[in-house]
Design a protein around this nucleic acid. Structure first.
Lengths: 349, 349
DNA sequence: CTGTTAGCGCGTTCAT
DNA sequence: ATGAACGCGCTAACAG
């Protein structure tokens, strides 16, 4: 920068001012400076800029995995919004491990990020209460934060599941099993609650939570489930991955869907409508989750104050009825299924 | 840091040395400093550290989309390797647009990143020849770089496609169509070459490239393809997305696979083996692409020199035979299909 | 083994 | 409207 200033015959400050647009610079000198910048191919050092000013124009994004399409889509949304605000995104994966998440979070702090968006690992975000996080803006998504200071964006897990399970009940099913991943995940618990509510409301007995840990294990689990004395006649898959395990198991065990067993699940995905049969699912607004989280974060950043109470945003979901639940085939014009809004209840999640 | 030094009764340099482990510090003073650090809850400022030293311990990752599972998995690998090396990753999406990519790339440069990994948009990486990139380490993946100074990691697109198409030919098909995305993508061109080679070698006439731009358009395209005077009896989908379009079209048009039309594609994905029929695909080592790219980058960073000639690494692919090609159903033990190595040819890509 | 000096490249604060 | 100092937090280069 000193070189530019010298070449243009001005002080460094004039160059600085011109670049940040903070003060008025006469048309004449501005031109000279611009030319000098071109000549020398000058690029400002953002590092030095961040060191001097307080903000780094960088936010951190910490999530469990990147190869999960749900998380990746959230990340894409965050990245897009950040870009629009002129911010960069430092991304890291926690592999659902608290220690990794915490380690990365404090590394980010040392890098002086202006804010962070986290999909917290189960039980793990207590560290956010620590003093070092007192002066950072934090927003969590998909799962709420333990610390109520922070904003979080979640979807209507309970209501959505209730709608999905209720739909299965309306098909005449009495014994419906709920299959999910690791029980300690917030989303799994919320969805299981929705399942129990739907069953109870219909006067049915909720079954206990069935945990699917792997593709292979799920085959065994489903097999034993179906050879019980009173086997379920319908299954609800708590998320994408569970659904995949289930589909694999149903293929291996040669289960006819929806003839023998009806099926519905939480979270829509790319080829859910192309499968045989097309899957009935609760669709969540994946991109919007990330978008909303990022917007909340930038809102906080621009306000600059650290509120004592965070807000929990609950995004609505919709039931997409296709064929795996037992509904009739639909015409070509409606091959994607007709989304059906799920009543939104503000205090739900 | 000055506070820590004062509290411990030492100079700032001692603290600095202790933290970076660059020189020996006596056990005695080290303890005092450590205690002071605890007391004051001192966290080093990585920004200042980067400004002073030459390296920022940060790399940039620029890719088209994050919601594409292929790209996301590459990103996950990069993030994991970077973490192992103590590096952070600045991520951005280009949306396959050259301008966005270039803009982000130079922003990264101003942030003084130590290296960058790019999945370059078509035609777009000429800017990498610019002088500002002379002092950065760059590795591209999935697609080669225009500038031969840089390393790149690609897979055996041509050989893999040749193997897949040849397999279809061995099933007795003579008219095989090749469907892909935007023709200007490197991978599409390489795969189309492989297709033509396989056809020519078998004495068959390669069909022209069929471009699938959207789900809806593909329905129309496939329909007109199949109502030609001599319609193809087999289709090869050049990637994941094309395959999805194709599956959608085959559902809408009620095409029986593999009875009416045989099908194979490039790039395996999560539920390809669960579909009816299970898909025969060329599987590429997605995670390894990102891993290898990151390793190459860190290798370059640690060497510190900027070579004039980059190396192109070609990763092998394998043909996973399932049912959509017309092969017989396989037992449960082999439901994932049996991968079959594709002969690797060093100068292929 | 440890302290001192001198910047890294900027922006803030004062002066002009 | 512009320039000169000073300092952000840290480390490289020399001292001792």
């Amino acid at each position: 920068m000193a070189d530019v200033a010298k070449l243009a015959g001005v002080g460094k400050m004039t160059v600085s001012r011109l670049l940040s647009g903070s003060a008025n610079v006469s048309k004449d000198t501005a031109d000279r400076v611009h030319r000098a910048i071109r000549m020398l191919n000058y690029q400002p050092n953002e590092l030095a800029r961040s060191l001097r000013s307080v903000h780094s124009n960088t936010i951190a994004l910490i999530l469990p995995y990147l190869y999960d399409p749900f998380f990746a889509t959230c990340a894409h949304a965050v990245s897009t919004v950040a870009s629009q605000h002129g911010y960069s995104v430092l991304i890291t994966t926690s592999n659902e491990k608290t220690e990794e998440e915490q380690k990365q979070a404090s590394l980010m702090l040392r890098r002086r990020i202006d804010g962070m968006i986290i999909i917290p690992a189960p039980h793990g975000d207590g560290y956010l209460r620590g003093g070092e996080f007192a002066r950072v803006h934090v927003v969590t998504m998909d799962r709420p934060a333990a610390d109520t200071r922070f904003d979080s964006v979640v979807v209507n897990n309970r209501g959505g599941t209730r709608a999905g399970v209720t739909h299965l009940i309306e098909h005449g099913h009495h014994r419906i099993a709920f299959l999910g991943l690791n029980k300690s995940l917030y989303t799994m618990q919320a969805r299981y609650s929705g399942y129990r509510e739907a069953m109870s409301k219909a006067g049915l007995q909720p079954e206990s939570y069935v945990e699917c840990t792997s593709e292979e294990a799920t085959v065994t689990t489903v097999h034993s489930l179906l050879t019980e004395s009173k086997p379920p006649t319908a299954l609800f898959a708590a998320n994408n991955l569970t659904m995949r395990y289930l589909l694999h198991a149903s293929k291996v065990l040669k289960i006819d869907i929806p003839g023998q067993i009806a099926l519905a699940g939480f979270d829509d995905f790319d080829i859910a409508d192309v499968l045989q049969p097309a899957l009935t699912v609760v669709r969540q607004p994946v991109y919007q989750i990330g978008e909303m989280a990022a917007n909340l974060l930038f809102q906080r950043i621009s306000r600059g104050e650290y509120p004592t109470k965070g807000h929990r945003v609950v995004l609505p979901v919709e039931l997409v009825i296709r064929r795996s639940c037992g509904c009739d085939p639909q015409g070509i014009s409606n091959v994607r299924g007709k989304p059906q809004a799920v009543a939104q209840n503000d205090d739900e999640d």
